[in-house]
Every structure is written in C-alpha cells, then in structure tokens.
C-alpha cells in the first residue's frame, strides 16, 4: 500500500463541511450535560429527598454503560415512547419528525450529564465550607450564596477536569455516525470509500480532531487564567 500524501490534504478539505455538525453535537451535549450535571450534583450534595437516590442511580447506570448503548437505546426506544404517547393523546407529532441529530443531542447530553455531575460535585466540595457560611453570615440566601460565591470557585477548581470531559465528548461525538449523522468521522468514511483511500481519510480525520482538541485546550487555558486569577497570590 502506498501512502498518498496529497490525498490527505484533499480528504482534509473534504471533511471540513462536516465540522459544524461535530461542533454542534459537542456544544449541545456539553452545555446541557453541564446543566444536568449541576442539577444532579446539587441533588446529591444536599441529599434532596427521593431525588438524590434517583440522581445516584442515574450516575451509576449511565457511567456503567457505554456511550454507544445510550445512543442506540435512545435511537430505538425514543420513537416507541413518542409514538405511543402521540397515539394516546392524539398529537400530530410523530417520531419520524425527529431529526437524526436530535437523537445524538439527547443521548450525548444524558451521557455528559452523568460524567459532568461528578466533576461538578468534586468542584463544589473543594470549596471551603467557610465560604458558604460567610455568605450566609452577611445575609445572603443560599441560592445567592451558591451563585455568587460557591459556583465561581467550584468552576475554577473543576475546570481542568471539565476540559478533559469536553474533549471526551468531542471525540465521543463520532459515534453519531451509527445513527446516520454525517459528522467528521462519517464524512471520513464517505471520503474513504468513494476514493478507496482509507488510511489517508482517517489520518485527515485524526488531524482535524487533534486540531479541534488543541483549540479546546487553548480556550480552557485562557479561561483558566481568567477564573483563577485570584489564586496567584504570594500567600496561601
């Protein structure tokens, strides 16, 4: 087999149209995963009746099963549920109207939520209890104290782990090709099979993912510099 160096570039250019899809899946799953994760982490930390048990079950089940199974279960199961409900309540909506990428959004958000919840929990727990007490002592309500005092510090502490998971979600988004979403990897498959040049196409995809990962690393580094500015003192 001969490596066709120039075709790597051709494939690379051919993959670019799929970049927005990959980014969209990653951004949606990361953002909603962050929201779900925060909610789950708070339920568990404050031991909210019933909910904290459900939250713990969610985390162990989702972390205990591969991301691909979440996607396939949602892909197969969600239409059953949606159509069943639609029939029962007489909705006009049918599952065929759900775009393919919708399944990726939903299932990857569920996946991300479980992983993020543990990162967020560790971040929240790293904030000294005295911070919350001081906020209460100056008359803040708990929601105010969490939002203004605890979350910013927890976020700063959790950022390195969060960026790790964002990268994980970026790479995991390649699984979307199993439900016919044309992301970077699916596009690489297409480019590879139509030109019969697999190695070059996969190399091009790898380079593209590496590039996106470097971008995430750079952005996190900038963000980290900003949110941990307060930590660079002479003392403590």
């Amino acid at each position: 087999m001969q490596l066709d160096l120039s075709f790597i570039w051709t494939a690379f250019v051919g993959l670019l149209p799929a970049v927005p899809t990959t980014i969209r899946i990653t951004v949606v799953s990361v953002l909603s995963g962050f929201a779900i994760g925060t909610f789950i982490a708070l339920c568990r930390m404050y031991r909210i009746p019933v909910l904290h048990r459900a939250a713990a079950a969610y985390v162990t089940v989702i972390r205990g099963t591969p991301m691909l199974t979440h996607l396939l279960l949602i892909y197969v199961g969600l239409p059953l549920i949606v159509d069943g409900l639609a029939e029962r309540f007489g909705w006009a909506f049918r599952s065929v109207q759900i775009p393919m990428i919708g399944f990726a959004y939903i299932s990857f958000s569920i996946t991300a939520g479980a992983y993020f919840s543990e990162i967020i929990r560790s971040g929240l727990q790293s904030v000294n209890k005295g911070q919350l007490e001081a906020a209460h002592a100056i008359g803040m309500t708990t929601p105010q104290a969490l939002r203004r005092i605890v979350f910013p510090q927890a976020f700063a502490a959790a950022l390195p782990n969060l960026s790790n998971s964002v990268i994980g979600m970026l790479h995991g988004s390649t699984l979307a090709f199993t439900v016919s979403v044309v992301d970077i990897f699916a596009q690489a498959e297409i480019v590879a099979t139509t030109n019969w040049k697999f190695f070059e196409a996969y190399l091009a995809a790898a380079l593209l993912f590496w590039g996106l990962t470097i971008l995430i690393e750079r952005l996190t580094a900038l963000l980290e510099k900003k949110v941990t500015r307060y930590n660079r003192g002479g003392v403590a």
């Binding site: 000294n128 005295g130 007490e133 001081a134 100056i138 307060y230």
Partner: peptide, 22 residues
C-alpha cells in the same frame, strides 16, 4: 433566620474572605 442574619455580622477565626473577590 434570614432576617436574623441581616441584623448580625460575623468575623471568623479563619477569616473566610471570598477568595475570588478583591
């Protein structure tokens, strides 16, 4: 409880300054 806290203030042994604020 909230009102009570607004009528009082506390100085802590470990200072407990908000670390991310000047």
């Amino acid at each position: 409880i909230h009102l009570l806290r607004r009528k009082t203030a506390m100085v802590f042994q470990q200072y407990n300054l908000f670390r991310h604020k000047t």
